[in-house]
């Protein structure tokens, strides 16, 4: 039941400026269905903007975003079928864990919405996936940072998105929790096989976790490749970033 359908992602010549500052300049990138892709770069490289453009939280000034070949550039985030995990969790503080995870299902139109019992089943299935069974009735502020991020992940998966987007998901956590969550994320990715794109500035994290890594600098993609391929890259800028 966990395995959903994955979609491929194509970014075609996307540019985006914030007032005078160019965040993305003519960026193109193809991500296969089911692939685990890392967007790696220093702050200001445009990696988060690229992720938000894919999510529909930013509209590019020019260029297109395609999911499975379908142009979604003008489709609002709510209708893209994505799951998004934020650096600072963005859990709803006034809702219980159960209500947080069920949110995406609760807001569906009446005729599409699954019945209560099915929603409850889905919540406990997801809690099991992130190894937090029995936390239904707690509130986010009763959980540790690592636990909150697991809940945020479960919430993002509730509607069976075809693409999972993660913005520095471990950025706010300490090293030990970070390692645990990394392997949990990799395991979950293998279990449900979802197209996953995550943003990080930590190259160990990118190389240890992803199938392929895109290295960004000043709003452009410098190089894309597998972790092994990139380690022997000839590109001077990439090399200086890795060492």
């Amino acid at each position: 039941m966990l395995r959903g359908t994955s979609a491929s992602v194509s970014v075609r010549s996307v540019s985006k400026r914030f007032s005078a500052f160019p965040a993305l300049t003519d960026v193109s990138l193809d991500i296969a269905a089911g692939e685990f892709m890392a967007l790696l770069g220093p702050s200001g490289s445009g990696k988060t903007t690229l992720l938000r453009v894919i999510a529909g939280l930013e509209v590019p000034d020019s260029g297109h975003v395609l999911f499975d070949g379908r142009d979604v550039t003008r489709v609002p985030a709510a209708e893209r079928g994505i799951g998004f995990v934020f650096q600072h969790y963005a859990l709803f503080g006034h809702m219980t864990i159960e209500q947080n995870i069920a949110f995406g299902l609760d807001v569906m139109k009446r005729r599409e919405r699954p019945p209560r019992s099915q929603i409850r089943e889905r919540v406990s299935e997801l809690l099991q996936l992130v190894q937090l069974e029995g936390y239904e009735k707690r509130y986010p502020n009763q959980l540790s940072g690592g636990q909150r991020q697991r809940i945020a992940l479960a919430r993002a998966l509730a509607r069976r998105p075809s693409i999972l987007l993660l913005d520095e998901p471990f950025g706010a956590l300490d090293a030990k929790v970070r390692r645990e969550l990394r392997s949990a994320l990799r395991k979950i990715h293998e279990e449900i096989g979802l197209t996953s794109i995550f943003v990080t500035h930590d190259h160990e994290e990118a190389f240890g976790l992803a199938d392929r890594v895109s290295i960004l600098g000043t709003g452009r993609i410098l190089e894309v490749g597998t972790p092994n391929g990139l380690r022997t890259s000839a590109n001077q800028v990439v090399r200086s970033f890795l060492d």
């Binding site: 939280l57 963005a90 995406g104 807001v107 509607r159």
Partner: peptide
Amino acid sequence: EAALSLGAS
């Protein structure tokens, strides 16, 4: 943004 990404209007 989280709510929007989860499909809320």
